[in-house]
Design a protein around this nucleic acid. Structure first.
Length: 747
DNA sequence: GCAAGGTC
């Protein structure tokens, strides 16, 4: 039997369907669906993995953070544990029977490693198994047939390269995470994480925030005028000095301009601007485009995943921006000859030749993201449709003609002062007809000629300030991460989510917390290796060398561990400093504002019972306090409540949407209000109820109790109502609580 | 409870 192993279930299924000349049979092995058919060479069985089916970890003995020093992890043994038990057992079962194995995982480094992992498992039960490897960049008949008729060998050097990454990430990440968390006293759910990708990414965000804080705005002035043409059209012109840095200068220029003055056109240049169609979507470009229409990176990827598993779009995790020639692009457009995008598809198909644009990145992993099948709006929810539509439109746009703009540059003289205005008009929409997102608007100027005279109807000086650099939005951040080589197409959005769930950042654009600043500062000072993208660049270079066979994996790992030892030496020498500066940062994040009663800081505090609340540092002299939700990380934002002078609060629960609680005092007041309203409601409801007429009407009073009450002289509802609960309890030996409940029921 | 990388 010939066993073929793909990286994912759907790939195994589709490859089997392409290669089989007859109908394929679905067979369940150890709870895993496999696909098989008989060929001339014998039985072929296809199984899909689920990415990595094993993971690296330290032995259990290292699990206790308090007992095992962080640096002990540097040289600790690393074990491999299966994460996909069913798939592993299916592999063993099939591997025993197999006479040959073909690795058909994705055509990239991780794919090679994933294939080698599967092979390792099979070798445990079938040490002498014969195996080979196939490479494909798209699951189309053309590509798959070509791949399977040209099998090659598994590249164990490449797999080793991937394996070295796993080891280095685990060793550096786990040990430094543990160290920093212990130093900051943040254990349990609140631990502070450190990693080769997340820490440099966080450092980027912190660095930008520092630039913003250090930024000194500089005032400047802008001078503009409204002109009216002879035909009555109004338009705005700006002084040639875009920014006046001196108030006196702008005033002097303004002085010369009066309403009713002549504005003579001194120069008029028209030209044509070519606006090239966009390149095919890879993951980064897709996330960035989705981000520009309001999707978070993680959300965009989650929805893309749904669209992919339902067969609406191609594989969403790809670096590639060049369609491979194994895809029949015309046929792919013809799918849309009916349905919502009919007019666009028909228009495109009029073209004799369909030449798509090409992006800079051409890789072997998967094709760029393109629409795989025709969908109806009713088949999906609104968000899914929005992204599906964007993928369809983008796909079309890559075949469309450039857009053409007519641009006009014009200059004017108003009493010796030069003004200008730029106009632009879309004359040929080209690709922008297919892909209408983020389109710049036409800026129209009236028709005019050099020497024409307009009249000034308004002149304005506007005071402005230079602005600090903006915070990074998620789309922007993902692009920068890609440029710096941080993370992969499949993980960048996860890394960003991780920064949120660790409460290192909040908001979008991303804003770091003081804790994040403290962590980054500490790493940059004492463990700079892990805080910079260079660690990844060096790792990439080392992995290339391992893959080329230039250096054994062990050598790279040894060198890496030696470097980490040095880092721990440095950390050890500065233990107290580190602890102190981390705790100072953590403390700042807990400040909610100033206590209105005593002027001390209001802080997020823990009670002895483990709950938490907002308390005053002036305690015990001041007892002002506000409640906080029991669950989730408390993030103090920079938004200030104008009424109470407290910072707004956001609650982050892993896997849930953040809860913007707002000002804790406003929130508490709101809460009190709703509580009171509810009480009132309950009262109304209870007063609506008919009053009990006899003692027996009261719930909890049966024959026996009624007799007891009668012995004590309580014979009517009114008697009970007027009785002293304590006294009655003593006489009847009925619990006071019960009596009080009855009394309140009557009232 | 620790990383980053696959996949769902």
């Amino acid at each position: 039997m010939h066993l073929i192993i793909a990286e994912k279930h759907i790939a195994a299924k589709r490859i089997a369907a392409i290669l089989a000349s007859e109908k394929i049979k679905q067979v369940r092995v150890s709870g895993v669906d496999t696909y098989e058919y008989e060929s001339e060479e014998g039985k072929k069985v296809f199984i899909g993995l689920s990415g990595h089916i094993v993971k690296l970890d330290f032995p259990k003995a290292y699990n206790n953070w308090q007992k095992v020093e962080a640096n002990e992890l540097v040289g600790a043994e690393i074990i491999t544990a299966s994460t996909q038990v069913k798939i592993v057992s299916a592999l063993k079962k099939l591997g025993k029977e197999a006479t040959k194995v073909t690795i058909a995982t994705d055509y990239d480094r991780e794919g090679e490693l994933i294939g080698a992992e599967a092979l390792d498992i099979i070798k445990q039960v079938n040490p002498d198994i014969v195996f080979d490897r196939v490479h494909y960049s798209a699951i189309t008949p053309k590509a798959i047939d070509a791949a399977f008729s040209n099998p090659t060998n598994v590249d164990f050097n490449l797999a080793d390269a991937g394996h070295s990454r796993q080891v280095i990430d685990l060793v550096w990440g786990a040990s430094l995470t543990r160290y920093i968390s212990l130093a900051a006293g943040r254990l349990g759910k609140m631990f502070l994480s450190v990693g080769r990708v997340q820490s440099p990414t966080l450092a980027l965000i912190v660095e930008r925030e520092k630039e913003r804080e250090a930024f000194v705005p500089r005032p400047y002035w802008e001078l503009s005028a409204m002109l009216k043409s002879k035909s009555g059209e109004e338009f705005k012109v700006e002084h040639r000095t875009k920014r006046f840095w001196e108030k006196a200068d702008v005033d002097a220029a303004m002085e010369k301009i009066s309403i009713g003055d002549n504005a003579t056109v001194t120069e008029l240049t028209t030209s044509e601007k070519i606006d090239k169609p966009p390149t095919p979507f890879n993951t980064t470009e897709f996330i960035s485009a989705a981000s520009s229409i309001g999707f978070t990176a993680a959300n965009a990827m989650r929805i893309a995943e749904t669209l992919y598993t339902n067969g609406f779009i191609s594989y969403p995790r790809t670096d590639n921006t060049v369609y491979p020639d194994t895809i029949d692009l015309r046929a792919q457009i013809e799918i849309f000859k009916t349905g919502a995008f009919k007019q666009y598809a028909l228009k495109l198909l009029e073209k004799k030749e369909l030449v798509p644009t090409k992006g800079k990145k051409e890789t072997t992993d998967h094709p760029p993201i393109f629409p795989a099948s025709l969908a109806k709006k009713s088949e999906m929810n609104e968000q899914e449709w929005k992204l599906y539509e964007m993928v369809v439109r983008r796909f079309f746009a890559t075949f469309a003609d450039p857009a053409k703009w007519e641009t006009i540059k014009s200059k004017y003289d108003i009493n010796g002062e030069e003004f200008k205005a730029n106009g632009a008009r879309l004359v040929e929409p080209g690709w922008r007809w297919y892909y209408h997102y983020n389109a710049p608007e036409d800026r129209l100027l009236p028709k005019m000629e050099e020497g024409d005279v307009h009249s000034v109807i308004k002149a304005d000086v506007e005071a402005k300030e230079t602005q600090p650099p903006g915070r990074y939005g998620q789309g922007r951040l993902i692009k920068i991460m890609e440029e710096l080589g941080l993370g992969t197409k499949a993980t960048r959005h996860d890394i960003i989510s991780k920064l949120y769930s660790r409460a290192y950042v909040h908001g979008n654009p991303l804003q770091p917390t003081k804790t994040a600043v403290a962590v980054v500062d500490t790493l940059e000072k004492f463990a700079p290796t892990i805080s910079k993208p260079d660690m990844t660049s060096k790792l990439e270079a080392d992995m290339d060398r391992i893959a080329e066979g230039g250096i054994p994996e062990d050598e790279v790992l040894n060198e890496s561990r030696e470097m980490l030892e040095l880092v721990f030496d440095e950390l050890g020498k500065n233990k107290d400093d580190i602890s102190e500066s981390l705790r100072a940062g953590l403390r700042e994040d807990k400040i909610i504002g100033v206590c209105s009663e005593c002027g001390s800081n209001l802080m997020v505090m823990r009670s002895k019972r483990g709950g938490r609340f907002i308390g005053c540092e002036g305690y015990p002299d001041c007892t002002f306090s506000l409640p906080l939700p029991k669950m989730g990380q408390v993030v103090v934002t920079d938004k200030l409540c104008e009424e109470h002078g407290l910072y707004h609060i956001r609650i982050i629960n892993a896997g849930k949407r953040p809860w913007n609680l707002g000002c804790p005092q406003c929130n508490f007041i709101e809460w009190q209000k709703t509580q009171e309203e509810e009480k009132l409601k309950q009262k109304e409801e209870s007063s609506d109820k008919e009053k009990p007429k006899t003692l027996n009407d009261i719930s909890g009073i049966g024959k026996v109790t009624a007799e007891k009450l009668a012995d004590a002289g309580i014979c009517s509802v009114d008697d009970l109502c007027e009785a002293d609960a304590l006294e009655l309890a003593k006489v009847t030996s009925i619990p006071v609580k019960k009596i009080k409940v009855w009394q309140s029921d009557i009232a």
